[in-house]
Structures are given as C-alpha cells and as structure tokens.
Simulated scan of single mutants.
Amino acid sequence: MDWSKIKTIFIITFLILDVYLLYQFMKIRDANKYEVISEASFEEKLKADEITYKDFPKDPIKAQYLSAKPKVFTQVDTDKLKGKSEDIRGTGTTTLHVTLEKPIKITAKFEPAELSTFINDNVLFGEDYQYGEKSDKDQSITYFQTAENVPLFKNINGMITFKIGDKNQIVSYDQTYLVEMEKLTAKEEILAPLKAIETLHQKGMLKSKSNITKIELGYSTLIQLAASQVLAPTWRFEVDGKESLFVNAFEGQIIQFNSDEKSKVE
C-alpha cells in the first residue's frame, strides 16, 4: 500500500472541503450583510419621509395559527346577568344584547379605566376582553376578546360593543365570545415589525410625516366558516394616535376590515 499517495489524497480532499466551507461561509456572510444593508436602506427611506415609529422587539417572535368557534349563549349565561340589567336578549344565539338598568356615565375624553370595573364585575367572561377602540361616528366603544394574551382585532365573533346614548352615557352593549380555542400549527417565526412597516410603506399606506404611535401583535380572522374560523397572527400599527393599519404577520399581506369581514391587499 502506497501511504504517500493516500496521504496526498487526504490532503487534497481536506483542501477541497476547506475551500467549499469557506465558500459557504462567504455566501452566508454576504447574505447577512445584504440584509443589514437593505434594512438600513429602508430606515433611511423612512427618515427621508419623516416617518417615525415606536420601539419594537428586536428579537424574533414566534406565533401560530389558531381555530375557534362562536359561543351560543344559554339560559344559564343570561341568568347570571339577571338583577344587573333591565333587558337581556340573545339566549340561543351567538350575540347577547344587554340594556343597562343604570346607564354608566363616561367622560368626553374616555379612558378604558372608566369601564374596567363594570366589565370585570358585570360582563360575562369580562376578564377575557381588552379595550379596542372608540368611534365617535358610531357612538360606540369596542372591546376585543383576547387569545394567547393578545387581542383578536375587529373579530365580530369576539367583542363587546358598548352603545353611547345621550349625555355621554353607556346605555347598552352587544357581546360575542369565541370558545374552543385550539392551536392548529406549531409556533413559527413571524414577520419582523420593520418588514411589516416596509410593506405598508411600499403600498403607500404611510404618508410622509406619519408617526407610528403604537405597535401591537394580535390575531385576525384568516378564514371565516359558518361554525368556526381560523385566526392568523397580525401586526397592528396605530398611526398618529388614531388610524390603525393591519398586516398579516405570516404572509405579509395588508388587511382591511369592513363591518363584517376582512379583505386582503397584495
């Protein structure tokens, strides 16, 4: 056996392997470098357009698809509210309508704390909702149901809508509630907030001198069926303290809501 030849073959083989590994390392380094440059470039675009934003998590975030079903309210549910309200309707349906015996006075500049005690003490599953939005046009205040400790954005099957009557008083509310929350997939890394902002910017959804005042992760309805729905992780960006923009945190699509469903913009 010619050990000299074998030794030479091993040396050549290891040299080839080293060259290959170096090539792969350079590719990864260049890809990472390009990604950093691209990110920095987009941040420069935002700066040029005078678009500012709040700090957001820098570390990767993981989430998953969920499924849920609308709850059908029963007599047992409505019995829990008797004595606290003058009119309760909705037994056997997915929407509970409650008229308050004593309207609740709120201030002109409403703060969520004004209703927190009432919701926790008087509303079914009140601890599972958080403040969503106030509409002066509709004279209403909406609270979103939560899942995985984050809100379900504008989900008609998981919200409380308080009706504001005369003299800035809450006179009634409608409630829906999602049950049987199940995890459909394993957790996966979602779109970084800056990438979602880039999508909004590319689609012309962010005007010059806009200020993104709040960045929040939640869920929105991806698929709506008669008896159930699929929920997808969603980024919410509050702009100038009033307008909200939504981006699917897996697919990167912009979500636009109307009264009873959502549509997507590529």
Rank of each mutant, 00 (worst) to 15 (best):
K5N: 12
E44A: 06
K71M: 04
S38R: 15
E39I: 13
D87K: 15
T176C: 04
D79R: 12
L217T: 10
M1V: 13
I6R: 10
L17M: 14
S244K: 13
K109W: 07
T213L: 06
T176V: 04
A227T: 15
A226G: 09
E114V: 03
S244I: 02
N149D: 07
E101Q: 10
L15C: 15
L115S: 06
S172W: 09
K137F: 10
G218N: 10
A186R: 08
M205T: 01
K154C: 00
I164C: 14
F118I: 05
A108K: 14
D174P: 10
T91D: 12
P70C: 05
I104C: 11
F73I: 10
F246Y: 15
L225Q: 11
E43A: 09
Q253S: 11
V150L: 05
V239A: 02
E188P: 01
F246M: 06
T99Y: 11
V171A: 06
L217Y: 03
Q24E: 12
R236H: 06
Q130R: 13
S4W: 02
Y23P: 00
E127T: 12
T199K: 14
I28K: 05
Q202D: 05
Y219S: 12
G204E: 08
I156S: 09
S259M: 14
V265R: 13
L96F: 12
G126V: 05
P112L: 00
T93L: 03
M205F: 07
T142D: 06
V36K: 15
G92Q: 04
Q75S: 12
N32W: 07
F125G: 01
N149S: 08
G158F: 03
D240K: 08
T74L: 00
D18S: 14
F118Q: 02
K54Q: 15
T74N: 02
I61W: 02
G158V: 08
N211E: 11
K105Y: 08
N168K: 14
D166A: 11
F153E: 02
K134M: 15
Q169S: 10
K62T: 11
E35P: 04
P112S: 01
K84F: 08
V239E: 02
K27T: 09
V76P: 04
E243C: 01
E182Y: 11
K71Y: 09
G241R: 10
W3M: 10
T185C: 04
E44L: 07
I170Q: 11
G218V: 06
I190V: 14
F10E: 07
R236G: 07
M181Y: 06
D18C: 09
K47Q: 10
E50W: 11
I160R: 01
F118P: 02
I12T: 03
G252C: 06
E133K: 13
D18R: 10
M181D: 00
V171H: 10
N258A: 08
I254N: 03
Y177F: 15
